[in-house]
Design a protein around this nucleic acid. Structure first.
Lengths: 242, 242
DNA sequence: AAGTGGTCTAGACCACAGC
DNA sequence: CTGTGGTCTAGACCACTTG
């Protein structure tokens, strides 16, 4: 669809790294060479390469070149905005989604506070359990503003809400804040998850915004302790005092 | 020291947002205006603004402009490579570091595996507890390759290892992989932390690399459940299939 | 000295918002 | 139509690494 040269370069190189065509430690063509093969300018090449570096695919060293990093396979839940469906597909897991609730209700006190609307504001409430190896280890509770999202059905929530929002409703999801904490188990957890003796669950709260900064979704993703893992790739950025 | 225009712009605008001079929701000058006031090109301005956007400071909307986001204050342990000292300074916490161990020893089986060296390879082993409100709630266990890092002392580890590495040793820290899980409490935790009845701790494992991709540090940061919080800012990047 | 990535320029054209 | 951000160009100079 799009013609973005730097995104094309990003995708192609990332794919080659994922596929092992470009093995860890190998040296990429120089920016000048990339500019020639993609028939573009060096600045455009650099946009793509910098994106690869930020996502942990490569490492750039001044005077030497760009090199493939070896973390390609360990990318479990890579940091970022990734939905459960994208994740499980990427990992090839034996997983299943069980939809318990898909209804449109008034927000209520607590959720109204999270979504910064009035308590009688209509929201979609979706409760889903994620099953891995026949155990419900993740409980996802989503609240979406009804005046932004319309026509949710159980079929859609079984598949992927994000896909529906972006493809069908053409919503432009821009960014999200996620907060990870460890909370006491509550009644919902005990009803809808297969917990052992655990007294706690990992809770990932997500606040998802549209391009115009509208907060339209609040999510609680509750994970059994032994099945939770979060992987983060971080570059060191030195910001000295001025 | 440096003359980077885009970094200067980033720092200045970020500071103004942090200080509230640029309140949430307010509109930044256009890229053209920034280019004029900083006497630079628009592409250079864009580098700085994109950096602000990636770090959750602003939101850019095509056709409209750049706007300040309101998450400025909630930045607790923001995702990224930030040391404890930088963090606590930023938050103004009443905190203290207790150094239990600063010694140079053979790596041993387990650590050798993490750092991908032989078991008799010499490493610095540092164990520190982080005290907040008179409770030791974080236990940091660091292993650093001795042939990369030299001359560690208790004074240095009380202050900031990172500062020593970057300022004194001139090491160029490039990136890290972090993995967050929840583990069973072990003997070290019970000895050096003020745990309640908790049976688990949050464990943040960090693998820190230099610019030449050398893995030189393995870190375990073990947090009491009720004091752990991780905040992540994530932009949605759509990478369609080709 | 040659090659590499890091920064920057002074334009250009496009897509999108809003009047 | 004007102003905005998104993409791109064809150079330039610098700092760094390597031979």
């Amino acid at each position: 669809m799009k013609n973005n040269i730097f995104l094309t370069l990003y995708k192609e190189v990332a794919q080659q790294i994922d596929a092992g065509v470009l093995p860890p430690g190998s040296k990429l063509p120089s920016e000048h060479e990339f500019a020639a093969t993609y028939d573009t300018s060096r600045e455009t090449v650099r946009k793509g390469l910098n994106m690869l570096a930020q996502h942990g695919y490569i490492n750039k060293v001044k005077g030497k070149g760009s090199f493939v990093l070896n973390n390609g396979k360990l990318k479990f839940p890579v940091s970022g905005l990734v939905s459960y469906k994208e994740l499980s597909e990427r990992m090839g897991y034996l997983s299943r989604t069980i939809v318990y609730v898909t209804e449109c209700v008034p927000a209520g006190e607590e959720i109204a506070r999270e979504l910064k609307v009035s308590a009688d504001h209509l929201v979609w409430k979706v409760i889903r359990a994620r099953e891995i190896d026949n155990e419900r280890v993740i409980l996802d509770i989503d609240y979406l503003l009804a005046d932004v999202v319309s026509g949710l059905t159980k079929e859609i929530t079984t598949d992927s809400i994000y896909h529906y929002l972006e493809q069908t409703l053409q919503l432009k999801i821009s960014y999200a804040e996620k907060i990870i904490t460890v909370d006491q188990v509550n009644e919902l957890d005990q009803s809808f998850m297969d917990l052992g003796e655990d007294s706690h669950v990992v809770v990932v709260r997500g606040y998802v915004h549209l391009e115009d900064t509208t907060l339209f979704q609040y999510t609680e993703s509750r994970h059994r302790l032994d099945k939770f893992q979060f992987v983060d790739f971080a570059r060191r950025i030195v910001v000295e005092e001025s």
